[in-house]
Design a protein around this nucleic acid. Sequence first.
DNA 1: CAAATCCATGCAATCGATTACACAAATCTA
DNA 2: TAGATTTGTGTAATCGATTGCATGGATTTG
Lengths: 340, 340
Amino acid sequence: MSEKTTIYDIAKELNITAATVSRALNNNPKISHSTRKLVLETANRMNYKQNRLALALRSGKSNNVGVIVPRINTNFFASVIRGIEEGLHPEGYQVIICQTHEDENREIENINTLLNAQVDGILMSISNLPKENNHYIERVIQKNIPLIFFDRKKEMENVSSVTIDDYQASYQTTQHLINQGCDKIAYFSGDRSLEIYEDRYRGYEQALLDNNIPINEDYIITIKSNVTEGRDAVEKLLALENPPNAIFSTSDFAALGAIQKLKERGIKIPEDFCVFGFGNEPFTKFMELTISSIDQSPLEMGKMAAQVFLDKINNRKSENKVVLLPKLLIRQSSTRIPQV
Amino acid sequence: MSEKTTIYDIAKELNITAATVSRALNNNPKISHSTRKLVLETANRMNYKQNRLALALRSGKSNNVGVIVPRINTNFFASVIRGIEEGLHPEGYQVIICQTHEDENREIENINTLLNAQVDGILMSISNLPKENNHYIERVIQKNIPLIFFDRKKEMENVSSVTIDDYQASYQTTQHLINQGCDKIAYFSGDRSLEIYEDRYRGYEQALLDNNIPINEDYIITIKSNVTEGRDAVEKLLALENPPNAIFSTSDFAALGAIQKLKERGIKIPEDFCVFGFGNEPFTKFMELTISSIDQSPLEMGKMAAQVFLDKINNRKSENKVVLLPKLLIRQSSTRIPQV
DNA sequence: CAAATCCATGCAATCGATTACACAAATCTA
DNA sequence: TAGATTTGTGTAATCGATTGCATGGATTTG
């Protein structure tokens, strides 16, 4: 039935040993031309396929890498994974995907599962900030397994990372809004205990300071990345005595919610109010009023993460922090002054 | 350094054999309570992790399943994969992902890679219609490895599938458009050599026939799933002597392109023209003019595919065709008569 | 022609975990 | 208390591929 051909089957067929078959298949120069030819033909005829598990067990290399993300079905993570896959597949690696659902326990679980599976490396975007007890991450390093963070990273020794320059992205965006004449810029933040959100906040803050605009704590709202939170946040902002005239949202979804609510209130965008998102979700450019956003080059980020992993595994580098340039996509929702 | 603890290390530590350790860890009742406790404690202390490769080699089960899709970074496929992952992870399976980029050679390559990796099953959405030479798919069946198609399936013996009822979806949508007063309904088709697109076409056709509306070949355009093709197709349609007053697009992206172009031409939606998409991409409900579409329940589809795989592997069923119900999401782009 | 060299292949251990079978010690039966 | 049974472990084979070392025959060298 399920006739799995092994090198032993080939050996028996040809009245030679499995060792010889193995060597022939691996182009070992010690094998005579005639034997090699015979083995290759027979292997082909018997539809032989190398059992990678056996190889993995012996060599200690599984040729699998694990990828851990909060969830897979958002454009950003799906695209990063696609990039990783494209970078690693040609090198013979398979990608195993795990989702944390932003849950710390599942994150730990996932890491253990991947270590069990003997992956050759782990590429991850942190879901939660591991508290003091981030032993589980250090265990990966102790095992000498390359660990690479992408996007949501944590500064750690011996851990490489691939991110965009979140600070710059944020600084430039804020400056852009100021250039458009906005002087009261609200800010939708993510969880600032994660480095990327802290960096983004600092960029926003510094741009305001550099333009002599005071920070207004009322304008700073922490949100989750969805439409509803964006709508709710706008309600709060419009209820202020001195409401803002721009929003920089670190989530495209919240930016969309904000725009919906602003329109309902009859506020004209971008004339009366500018909005800027983050992430370049596909819908931002599909809207009638296209939404300005920041592209994080997820495909490139994934490919780069794959490259960093390959460099590490080949001992070319022990540590490496890659920072990609963000791309500001200035669209209608923040364009008062026509772009040249 | 990378101190991988094995059962042999534990055995040596306790002056017993690996067999005993193995049994203790597997709760074999023949092991004395004291030994078991000792082993478990020691294993824990030495941070033992079972090597799944060794287990896989011995048992012949890798506890990996392969998933093959055209690409991962679309909402639909990412969501299906998420569903598969959620269904399989609790059962101890890891998901290995491969992308074909719609390329037949990569599809063959992917299957070979997965067979090499000794996956316990393959879940796939066909990219290309394998011609006569679909040996590569049959090889999977010969090896007695469960094969499950989702969405883009091909009718084959011993192969299970999970799809939505594409015919019904299409029939109902066409009927809905007719009910809205549209009598000249154009149709954007995918590659009809794939079953799902053929089914969808038949649904469209039958609904027209049942309403005594003649089929107009000029209205039927085969497109790729992107915005540009939708725009181009509308240009062609509007250039006709007798242009249509509705479009049923089997792609949300093409539907969006169509809407953009129609608006540019000053055509009012839905008053003068109705548009219906397919796939329920997130943007369809985010637009100012929300786009009617068909939800394919990708998450559920993935979970169901996982379930069918589990049933098969546990010999509960040898073959199984699951057909999910499509959900018509009737939104503004096709609503002339207000819904109750 | 005897000794040295080389070539192609075989032998056997290894990776880590599991498990059928064997066996010694402990416990029970009559 | 001798024999039967149970209990807990050890022995060794197995999964499939790789590889250091050994070996036997052919070829070359002096």
